[in-house]
């Protein structure tokens, strides 16, 4: 998995609340295409007009936000369906970090699995970043090791992340290899469970 250390980019102030994963990628696109091919269809219903032309009103179709690697959003980003393709579609679009006051729980974990940073800041802080992005512009810097966002004007905002997830992202760790080291414990659990709940171990 690609490591996440420091990311410098403009931050696109999308600032919508309750962005669901259906909106990020339609299910049919997701399963007809492979990973790596989804970028063109991310935010499809917002990005294109009914005649398939780009919608010039949509933020990510406008310079300087096109190609932004950081998205700013309002609460509950990535709610709804568990489809991991929502993360892949954002990834294919070039996004590596989403900053929002809150995230859908499943989407949040899916980000960690893919080397993308879901970054929680207080709603006022995200709004101040959005205001700065619109009024001042320029790149912001996200430093995961320092758990700090440096705004375009040089302000520093600290953020929290669960330590294990931070390490996973920083080192690009593979969760499965880490867990396979617990094989003996898993065996032991299953042996004990067989005694505790024998009914689960008989053939139907």
């Amino acid at each position: 998995m690609e490591k996440f250390t420091v990311l410098n980019s403009v931050a696109a102030p999308l600032m919508l609340a309750n962005v669901d994963t259906d909106l990020i990628i339609r299910i049919e696109r997701l399963y007809r295409l492979d990973r790596g091919e989804l970028g063109a269809w991310a935010f499809e219903s917002l990005r294109y007009l009914s005649d398939d032309r780009e919608n010039p009103q949509f933020l990510l179709n406008q310079p300087p936000w096109r190609g932004a690697r950081i998205l700013l959003a309002a609460e509950n980003f990535g709610c709804g369906s568990s489809r991991e393709g929502a993360v892949w579609a954002l990834w294919d679009l070039g996004v590596r970090c989403v900053i929002a006051p809150s995230f859908g729980d499943i989407f949040y974990n899916n980000c960690i699995q893919n080397g993308m940073l879901p970054l929680r800041l207080a709603a006022e802080q995200v709004e101040s970043l959005a205001a700065e992005a619109k009024n001042v512009g320029g790149e912001i810097s996200v430093d995961l090791a320092a758990q700090q966002v440096r705004t375009a004007s040089g302000r520093l905002l600290a953020f929290d992340i669960e330590p294990g997830q931070r390490e996973t992202l920083l080192k690009g760790l593979d969760a499965i290899s880490l867990t396979l080291a617990y094989s003996a414990e898993i065996d032991k659990y299953q042996e004990r469970d067989r005694m505790l709940r024998p009914w689960l171990y008989r053939k139907a």
Binding site: S82, I106, N109, Q113, I186, Q190
Partner: peptide
């Protein structure tokens, strides 16, 4: 609860979830 497909690979390979 619902999980993504990477977490599901983890479950299939280890019968556990973090």
């Amino acid at each position: 609860w619902g999980i993504g497909s990477s977490e599901l690979v983890h479950v299939l390979a280890t019968q556990t979830i973090v």
